[in-house]
Design a protein around this nucleic acid. Structure first.
Lengths: 130, 130
DNA sequence: CGGCATCCTGTTTGATACTG
DNA sequence: CAGTATCAAACAGGATGCCG
């Protein structure tokens, strides 16, 4: 890296810095347990709000709504409303969502693979903390 | 799936159910942004507490300690203390940690790949919410 | 330097109730 | 059925100070 910078080079650096912090922001927003679980289950098939709630399990109505909105905003999930009575709303993964699902799948596989390693490690750790 | 179950089959099912909920618990505990960022940076090289704090950036002393303990407890990170003055503590990824890092790397790649898709989607969404 | 305990604040969350 | 609002409870997180 030299000590001379043209104006355009400075702009490029500024752009990279902006992109980087935004990338980190996206990363932080999406990397949470509910989002991952939702993506994992939605990957299996399109589901209605209530189905998803049952599948995920242990998530409150409010949390599911919040996370679905966040995922929709980021273009990972598509929301389709059928204006019937009672209302019917379906959620599907988009291409970006499917792509992230393969990452989440990787994590599921990891959990299975290292399951006993983790259990053992936990016991050892807890025992050592008396 | 028949309607008759032997005692051992019931036990197996019970075990699977226990393992499943534990797996989900592990999944939920590890799938958070700080843990992912820590794993990502530690994957590059062994680091001291302070280095890691600087690399991750924006994480408080307390959060870093908490997450490192959690990762150590689950056997993803190994903690080495050098009893010098001042103290020197190094953190390294274990095999399980490295394995999870490849998942996190996948997510980093995903973020880069869909970066502009996400930005566009966000703008569209925010505009539609007036 | 790194860890732990404490206090204190603001965010997250669940429960509840009401709307279309 | 799905969404939104509101409220209280619970928790996460930052700041600070002291210890090894």
């Amino acid at each position: 890296m030299g000590t001379k910078h043209g104006a355009s080079e400075l702009l490029v650096n500024a752009d990279l810095a902006r992109a980087d912090s935004l990338a980190r922001e996206i990363f932080s927003e999406v990397a949470n347990k509910w989002a991952f679980l939702i993506i994992e289950f939605l990957g299996q098939r399109t589901m209605r709000f209530g189905e998803l709630r049952d599948e995920v399990g242990g998530i409150s109505h409010k949390m599911l709504t919040q996370n679905l909105r966040m995922l929709e905003r980021n273009g990972l999930v598509e929301r389709t409303v059928y204006p019937t009575i009672p209302p019917r709303v379906e959620y599907t993964l988009t291409g970006a969502g499917e792509a992230l699902r393969s990452v989440v799948d990787g994590m599921c596989g990891w959990t299975q693979r290292y399951f006993s390693h983790i259990e053992t490690s936990r016991h050892r750790f807890d025992a050592s903390q008396l």
